[in-house]
Amino acid sequence: MRPLTEEESKVVFTKLANYIGKNLVHLIDRTDEPYCFRLQKDRVYYVSESSMRLGISVARPNLVSLGTCFGKFSKSGKFKLHITALDYVAQYAKYKVWIKPNGEMPFLYGNNIVKAHLGRITEDTPEHQGVVVFSMSDIPLGFGVTARSTIDTRKLDPTAIIVFHQADVGEYLRDEDTLF
């Protein structure tokens, strides 16, 4: 377990900022308890200072997980956001997409969101913007990247892809062994 280097922090923050924008500051500058990012076996954990200090005493091979896993670094140094980060990403999300009940299951099985399943979308979402996907009853289901801006979606046919799938809560079952 170690703190992120500056390059690593930059990669993680750019990825997070794609979803939550300037709200990223609230993750770092918290009022309740100091939190920090820690790297352990190429996974990035968002952990409170007190549990981090407890985790220091656990040897590296024995430490399985701590705090909330936000994602992992690939071998080429890219950062992949995991579904476990959804709690924090959904809380501060800048752009949101709501999907109709009949579109929930296809999304939870890992498919992209088509226009027919789109219930609502944040007004001025640009293209290729990270969005958090909610059900119509405001339950966060996952996140993805918009294929078109809000304005462009108006003139599309119902089968056109609106949001590219990136992570959904179905992964808790599908990728159970590698997720945390």
Binding site: M1, R2, P3, T5, E6, S9, K10, F13, T14, A17, K22, L24, V25, I28, D29, P34, C36, F37, R38, E49, M52, R53, I56
Partner: peptide, 24 residues
């Protein structure tokens, strides 16, 4: 060479905030 894990967390916080403002 990495930063120590057990250093006071305030420095880390300041560094992160500075990095974010620089990125912006």
């Amino acid at each position: 060479k990495f930063d120590p894990t057990e250093a006071p967390i305030d420095h880390e916080k300041e560094a992160s905030l500075a990095l974010i403002s620089r990125m912006e």
